[in-house]
Amino acid sequence: MSTGLPLWEVFIRSRRGLSHQHVGSVHASDAEMALRNARDLYTRRGEGVSIWVVPAAQVSASSPDEKEPFFDPAADKTYRHPTFYRIPEGVKNL
């Protein structure tokens, strides 16, 4: 009896100068309707100046359980951070 409409993930730029941020999802038959639904649902009080909708099925995600192996390469490279380096005292603007 019930027809399910596809799921879309919604991203909103809350104001100029900021990137789009995920706010939730909507159901809609196509992108056009997803945008309208997202506008009605997530920007009733001027919360956005721009909306993206993406078919939820198109999102690829890393698994939180792969956390260690997947993000491992970043863990042992402390020389990527400025605090890694010894700078003689008194040297300014560095």
């Binding site: 799921l7 993930e9 991203f11 990137s19 789009h20 941020q21 995920h22 999802s25 993406v54 939820a56 099925a57 999102v59 690829s60 995600a61 890393s62 698994s63 939180p64 359980d65 792969e66």
Partner: peptide, 30 residues
């Protein structure tokens, strides 16, 4: 923010069963 958002979206689609299966599969030793 967008990275974590993606995670959420995919879970919504994959379903909890899928998510749990994925978690189990990712680390067979866990």
């Amino acid at each position: 923010a967008e990275g974590s958002a993606g995670t959420e979206g995919a879970a919504g689609v994959a379903g909890a069963a899928g998510a749990e299966a994925a978690a189990g599969a990712a680390r067979p030793g866990a």
